[in-house]
């Protein structure tokens, strides 16, 4: 069978579908000071999943606010800098108007994912940390 670390090189999704892959990628991102990109990506997925399990509205609102505050509000943050202004305004509007939708972070997540696919992921595959692991 194909070893997991070779699968990680197939696509970002294969990497993010494996616990060890996530761990190694996060260690790499931490070195580059951009682990928030990955945390935000998972936070968006987790937020969307909440809708499926009959979770209370208060928790959803609290979580949406927490994600907004930690990753988007500060324009100098690594995540915030990679998200388009229109996308940020959309999320801000949702939070301010208490219009909490399971898909409210989808566009922002896509933008961060594209950035990782084009930038941090290929760099990771060439990094010492990955090569040493393999």
């Amino acid at each position: 069978p194909t070893p997991p670390y070779l699968k990680w090189a197939e696509s970002l999704h294969s990497l993010l579908d494996d616990q060890d892959g996530i761990h190694l990628f996060r260690t790499f991102l931490k070195q580059e000071d951009c682990a928030d990109l990955l945390d935000f990506w998972f936070a968006c997925s987790g937020f969307r999943k909440l809708e499926a399990n009959e979770c209370n509205e208060e928790k959803k609102l609290k979580l949406a606010k927490a994600i907004y505050k930690k990753y988007i509000l500060d324009n100098n943050g690594i995540v915030s800098r990679q998200i388009k202004p229109a996308t940020k305004s959309f999320i801000k509007d949702c939070v301010m108007k208490l219009h909490i939708d399971p898909a409210m972070f989808d566009q922002a997540q896509t933008e961060i994912q594209t950035m990782m696919e084009e930038n941090t992921y290929p760099v990771f595959l060439k990094s010492d940390i990955y090569l040493e692991y393999t």
């Binding site: 579908d17 616990q19 945390d39 936070a43 968006c44 987790g46 999943k49 979580l63 505050k69 930690k70």
Partner: peptide
């Protein structure tokens, strides 16, 4: 503040794949 961080961490963990 702590509970907000906990909530966020719980959300991040919930989205990660489980050990195979």
């Amino acid at each position: 503040i702590d509970s907000e961080d906990d909530l966020l961490q719980e959300c991040i963990t919930s989205a990660m794949p489980k050990k195979k």
